[in-house]
Design a protein around this nucleic acid. Structure first.
Lengths: 192, 192
DNA sequence: CGACTTCGTCAACGCTTGTTGGCCTACAGG
DNA sequence: CCTGTAGGCCAACAAGCGTTGACGAAGTCG
């Protein structure tokens, strides 16, 4: 049978470990880092709190293991220049709604220094390369990527964390229609 | 001597109360609600933790008293239609940088249900009326105001909370130049 | 001066948190 | 079958939290 590459030797406790990670993601997303307790996470997973410590070492270790983010940003290379905004916004919306990890990370990043640094890392390692594909002037890539981040994270904040009613009520298509031109301009327009 | 309207009769402890509020704002802004403790706030203010309880009743009461937000949004009436975006972005930047209360509120709103509801209230009572002045179609006001909020709060999040380096490095004029057209479009453009 | 309110400190409470170590159970390999 | 090891639970710990009430100091007013 084809195993995972060359990682773990398939321990007997894998289902428990996975249950812990699932519960942790849910709690971190709903409550943030400080209010999500190991005890409630363990109860959600149906096991003893000490198991969490044994498998993940500490609360920080658990958070690090639970929130492993891959934005899976698309390759903008083959795309027409004027569709990158719409492609990015659509992709972000889909990622955010299928995966509570992103909400967890945003919540924690807003309170916790370690969380904020993790988000800086994701920005640098995942968004910057994509912006490099869309932005003509290489020197401007960080600025353009940061502007894009303000709009995309602002949407996530108001829609998934603060839940401003009008932002929640918007349909995905409406959001794309409104935000795509903004992101498009931030990435590809000449300096204003 | 001309007193404040008809509020407090000027107690002797007013300086202490103010010191508590100052320390509280600073701690809430830096650490968020859960990690900011009454004990550290009291130590910062140079008094005993029990004083905080006496004057503000509870930690929640302290937060409510410390974070009283008035955005002082300008009257858009007399402004040319095509300058509302720039006026709003400029004003938001100024408010945010002179006052750590807004950062405190944003941090808490991201973790705490009560904080999120407070932000919803500010949106409804302060941003909505201003949007009404700029937006031609009354029925669209909530949507347009929410879109504006995504961009403005997204800027605050990346620049003042997450501190993405390129977002921090931007000058105020650059930010206005980039964001003003976005906000202008969200408020005044016809449906996309 | 003496009575009374206000300001402030101190010590403690009950509770929750992350974390630890010991113990029982059950499966695996020889 | 028997032994070793990994999975799991239980009880407890030290620390920190918000909160409370008693008590002394200091100012206020008759």
């Amino acid at each position: 049978m084809p195993d995972n590459k060359l990682t773990a030797p398939a321990r007997r406790s894998d289902t428990t470990r996975a249950a812990i990670l699932d519960a942790a993601r849910e709690r971190f997303a709903a409550d943030g880092y400080e209010r999500a307790t190991i005890r409630t996470i363990a109860r959600d997973a149906g096991i003893d709190p000490s198991m969490v410590m044994r498998y993940y070492g500490s609360k920080e270790g658990l958070f690090a293991a639970a929130v492993a983010v891959d934005l899976k940003l698309p390759d903008l290379g083959p795309l027409p220049r004027d569709e990158v905004g719409s492609a990015l916004v659509t992709h972000f919306l889909a990622m955010w709604e299928e995966n509570e990890v992103l909400t967890a990370l945003l919540r924690v990043g807003a309170t916790n220094q370690a969380g904020a640094e993790r988000m800086q890392g994701i920005f640098q390692e995942q968004l910057l390369p994509v912006a490099r594909q869309a932005c003509p002037d290489p020197e401007q890539v960080p600025v353009r990527a940061a502007l894009t981040a303000t709009q995309l994270l602002g949407l996530a904040l108001t829609r998934y964390v603060l839940r401003l009613p009008p932002a929640v009520a918007l349909s995905r298509q409406e959001i794309v229609a409104w935000l795509a031109p903004t992101v498009q301009r931030y990435l590809t327009a000449p300096n204003p």
